[in-house]
Design a protein around this nucleic acid. Structure first.
Length: 425
DNA sequence: TCTGGGGTCCTAGGACCC
DNA sequence: TCTGGGGTCCTAGGACCC
């Protein structure tokens, strides 16, 4: 297919998606693993899931987000690894730089995906297709491969990128968007998950072509504010803009959660888990220089039963002794001893510059009592200094080098840092 | 020992204020 | 004696993404 600039009218947006990225990096770094099934994910014994499966493993039916025990059954000889995230981030950065070398407007959307703007006449007069081909070749030189979708909007580019994988390139020429999208199931479009798909099915809408013909107002009533834009996007009429990625400092929340190999039932164990997870969050907050004034506790009792509770703090903090103590209090709102807990999560948010609304009541409430773990301001300072010192020790001697006695047993049963799932399910 | 972890955004109800 | 109405904050839960 050849297209000169004169044939391309309107915006040209590309979406680059790295093929089985984590597994590909592992195969790049371990030549003896090439051509073999490789699975990056949590271990089958610890309630893990598959993050990425190499294409060799996919032939056995293994895919992202599959429970690891199931993947193990399908592909017993697969090579397993928990993943090497610093290495993936490094490789990702090189890929992003490669795209930037070809066009200045790049929006990284995840570790393995980026939109880029190659609209003819905007930064260059070259054919968008030629630029995409060159990007694909240069990425391959780095040792990993990618698939690219090219179209006049983000929605089209994204869907196109998934049509031919791995190492594919799918071009949807201007004017052909509606015909390209129409036969596809609604779930092909990002923003349409299980729930929305089911809702649309009830309404007799199964394909993007059918969705494109819906009354936007009807969709708004059925699906909320996102409804009308789904119609526009399904019709291929979306006007999208590639934006440089927001800075990491713009994070709105920092959280950690751990699933335990065996459910926790005693207050002692659950409280120890809350403290352990709070400590992980505290370390990350301090390393990012963020302080939040809201803490959230999350407990998962079974696969589909989760409860959360949150609370405002008197002042923004990055110290687990402060927000962790509040998280412990929230425990009683959502849990009673004896109920099995499979996951414990703690999050801190509310990094905005302004202080939360002062709540006079709190000053006199019994919960600000002296039996708090950390209440008196002087004690706060001492404990935070302790947290900072502990960060230092952990960074020098490893994460496991410092932990409370009660945490030790938990650390043994908690899944190791499970890699994020980098692919759509 | 079926189904992880880190995020963002939206919704809906109640509190509270004027 | 039948209780307004807009705005904002807070909270819990859920959908979705990679």
């Amino acid at each position: 297919m050849t297209t000169s600039m004169t044939e391309w009218s309107g915006p040209a947006i590309g979406l680059l998606d790295l093929d089985a990225f984590f597994a590909s990096v592992e195969q790049l770094d371990h030549p003896q693993w090439r051509g073999k099934p490789v699975i990056v994910g949590g271990s089958p014994e610890r309630r893990g899931v598959v993050s990425t499966a190499s294409y060799e493993a996919r032939r056995f039916g293994v895919h992202s987000a599959m429970p690891s025990y199931q993947a193990k059954r399908l592909c017993p000889d697969a090579i397993w690894t928990q993943g090497h995230f610093d290495r993936y981030r490094q490789m990702s950065a090189r890929v992003m730089q490669t795209i930037l070398d070809e066009t200045p407007l790049v929006e990284q959307v995840s570790i393995d995906e980026a939109f880029f703007d190659v609209t003819p006449g905007r930064f260059s007069r070259e054919s968008p297709i030629a630029i995409c081909r060159r990007i694909q070749g240069r990425v391959a030189e780095l040792g990993v491969t990618c698939s690219i979708g090219l179209g006049t909007s983000k929605t089209v580019a994204k869907i196109a990128s998934e049509r031919q994988k791995p190492r594919g390139m799918t071009v949807v020429l201007p004017g052909t968007e509606a015909a390209f999208l129409a036969p596809l199931p609604v779930s092909a479009m990002s923003g349409v998950g299980k729930a929305t798909e089911a809702r649309l099915r009830q309404m007799g809408v199964a394909t993007l072509g059918q969705l494109a013909r819906q009354d936007p107002e009807r969709m708004r009533r059925a699906l909320g504010v996102a409804g009308p834009s789904l119609v526009t996007r399904a019709a291929g009429r979306e006007v999208s803009r590639v934006r440089e990625r927001a800075k990491p400092e713009a994070a709105k929340s920092v959280s950690n959660e751990r699933t335990f190999a065996h459910d926790l039932t005693t207050r002692e164990d659950v409280a120890a888990a809350v403290r352990m997870v709070s400590q992980m969050v505290g370390t990350r907050l301090r390393s990012k220089g963020l302080r939040g004034h809201q803490v959230t506790l999350k407990l998962k009792f079974s696969y589909d039963k989760t409860r959360t509770a949150q609370r405002q703090l008197d002042a923004p903090t990055d110290d687990e002794h402060v927000f962790g103590a509040q998280a412990l209090r929230l425990l009683d709102d959502v849990w009673h001893e004896g109920t099995p807990v499979r996951l414990v999560g703690v999050g801190v948010s509310g990094f905005g510059p302004e202080a939360p609304r002062q709540r006079q009541l709190e000053l006199f409430s019994p919960e600000a009592g002296e039996n708090d773990e950390a209440t008196a301001p002087g004690r706060h300072r001492d404990l935070r200094a302790l947290s900072v010192a502990a960060d230092e020790v952990r960074s020098r001697f490893g994460k496991g080098s410092l932990s409370l006695g009660s945490e030790l047993r938990l650390r043994e049963s908690a899944s190791d840092t499970a890699p994020m799932n980098k692919e759509a399910d």
